[in-house]
Design a protein around this nucleic acid. Structure first.
Lengths: 368, 368
DNA sequence: ACCCTTGCCGAAACCGGTTTCGGAACAAAA
DNA sequence: TTTTGTTCCGAAACCGGTTTCGGCAAGGGT
């Protein structure tokens, strides 16, 4: 008969001892059968499996952990302090990770922190108590304390994004620089020659990459970068509004702007209104993120979308592989962002159809 | 010397054996000293504590779990299928839970699911593997399968919200019905007599409560409810737009509307535009949620805000108390929502200052 | 017929903690 | 002095698994 002293949740819990007794085998044999050891007869293995299934046996994760050293849990530490741009995607992200993890019977442990120091402290606690086998690090910075910590302790981890020195790092990322490049190319194809840029906070590595992508795009289109048309450090709609105003107030303002984040673009929308211009008519905008708000803005924002759910899933799978021994060098993947063409980047019946000079003239006089 | 075979993360791990050896005590004594057993001399207890501190000893959570039956982890299963209204609050919510949990050295395990069946399956797995000790159940329904499951298995849990039969349930909730009542009272105070209502999906228990609160509010103001001015089942902005149009198309449309959710109100904004009316001038709106989008809408939406972070924290603390033995009946708390007065509920220089009859007339002719 | 593999399983140690039980040392009461 | 009672700690069992080790039995080769 199964386990009589069943304290805690789960009702009558069937342990490996119950299973072994029911089968007339030793618990060691049962364990090895369940874990596919080579020294178990195929017939026995099947008998054990079937009995386990029938009796509803589930190995207690912690009991395994104590011997194997694996909690079978992935750690994710969210920064709740900063207004996080990935808020709207968080559910999708968690969903992706959770699915990727549960497919291998792993789980996701989430913690939060407000600043970088707190982040490291939280991760340390999770590690010390052995609650987690590895970490997913979102929003990687060029110089990231979390990476130093984990590297120093020899703990497996994977970056969502890249970093300055990615030696020994596994990572998954979206090709932001490629998207920026394509955005410039697209705008140049529409006839734009003065293309502005709004980038994110410089400490995040993606800002650096996207900026470079933008510059590469300009070069590819034979355009010279104008520092006056480029602003960095945008991370909220408010930032974007301020920065946008600066761009639009320029004596020779851009006819198009590439934004590294949707929030920046949304801020630019506001700036445009205040400057008496209209996005989609006087000003072309292409952005990046594919956030839901972008779809309902006026005009709907053309944006490069990232599939956050798929990213979460990939991150989970890759981290598990890393924990299981795959070398970090073999765990690096980059996927393209997907363009969602909407109305903000086509200046209907004007820029689009007119030759370049006329375009410039039209815009300029509109502003004057 | 500490543990030489240190597989896995964490570098040189100091175990209770290392500690005992260093102190010249048995590991049982060390354990009891650390856990404040009464049969340990005060001097010894201190000596042990200090050594533990100095050597950086952290008990391995899983090793404790195997004997105590406590994983020291709270479970949260998110429904990723439905477009979740609490998306913008998710970070805050997780942050609250995480803080409440980590104060007691507990952690948060998050999983996702798409439908109700999946939800139950996920929770079952988490329980069977003993990954969690209890659950936080967000978005409770009047008849909730999760509750039946957990009740049946005798697993501790706490509701975020209330439910049909809350016997033996611990819960934490925001006083939505009170907010609805106050909203009606406020609008009636401004002179409104035809007050509409837009409610949420009926299966969620809060919809029921808020609806009742609205009706109570009407009664308190001496107004008779008009079924034609009440719509239910709104859960997205789109729903809200459709429902709003229905309300505004009424031959004798409402001069004010109480919304049970901000998304409903935002939908109503759209409907008003299409109907040629202007919220804050022809139509007063009070809503509930306090979502960030509501602050930047035009006009800014007056809404009852819920402190999701505080809720998360309270839920975590209460669930831990429940797991530790406090009776569910002693773990029930309701806190008021906080009114954030903005522009959407004051019809400047018209309804506000005019007597009731005139108001009605003004609105009506505006529509005609 | 004997030895040597090989296949397969049981026994027992082990992981890192918690908890029970009993007894030594010492003080107070008889 | 003996008895009784406390205080405090060690020894060992226990939790539910995993992993090592050794040995029995069957099969193959000589």
């Amino acid at each position: 008969m199964p386990n009589s002293s069943n304290a805690g949740p789960g009702r009558v819990r069937v342990t490996i001892n119950d299973l072994a007794a029911a089968l007339g085998l030793s618990k060691g044999t049962v364990s090895r059968a369940l874990n596919d050891y080579p020294d178990i007869a195929e017939a026995t293995r099947l008998r054990v499996r079937r009995a386990a299934e029938r009796m509803g046996y589930r190995p207690m994760a912690q009991a395994q952990a104590i011997r194997t050293g694996r909690a079978r849990s992935l750690g994710l530490v969210l920064n709740a302090g900063r207004s996080d741009a990935h808020k709207p995607f968080l559910t999708d992200f968690l969903d992706g990770i959770s699915r990727g993890a549960s497919e291998e019977s792993w789980t996701l442990t989430v913690a939060t922190s407000e600043d970088e120091a707190d982040e490291v402290a939280t991760m340390t606690r999770l590690l010390d108590e052995r609650k987690v086998d590895g970490f997913i690090l979102p929003r990687t910075k060029t110089r990231d304390m979390r990476i130093s910590l984990l590297r120093g302790r020899g703990v497996p981890f994977i970056l969502f994004g890249r970093t300055g020195d990615a030696t020994d790092c596994a990572w998954f990322d979206i090709d932001g620089e490629g998207a920026m490049r394509a955005a410039v190319q697209r705008l140049a194809g529409f006839g734009h020659r003065r293309i502005g840029y709004m980038g994110g906070l410089p400490e995040f590595h993606f800002s650096r990459l996207r900026r470079q992508g933008f510059l590469d795009g300009l070069a590819g289109a034979g355009l010279a970068p104008d520092p006056a048309l480029m602003v960095e450090g945008v991370f909220t709609v408010e930032d974007g509004a301020v920065a946008g105003l600066r761009l639009l107030d320029h004596p020779q303002p851009p006819t198009a702007v590439v934004c590294a984040l949707d929030v920046a673009a949304l801020g630019l929308y506001r700036a445009a209104i205040r400057a008496g211009r209209k996005v989609g008519r006087d000003l072309a905008v292409i952005s990046y993120d594919g956030s839901p708000e972008a779809a309902v803005s006026d005009p709907p924002l053309t944006s490069y979308a990232v599939d956050t759910r798929a990213a979460g899933r990939a991150l989970a799978e890759m981290l598990i592989a890393n924990i299981r021994g795959t070398a970090p060098e073999d765990l690096r993947r980059i996927v393209p962002a997907r363009l969602i063409p909407r109305a903000s980047d086509r200046l209907f019946a004007r820029v689009t159809d007119a030759p370049r000079e006329t375009t410039q003239g039209t815009i300029t006089t509109t502003l004057a």
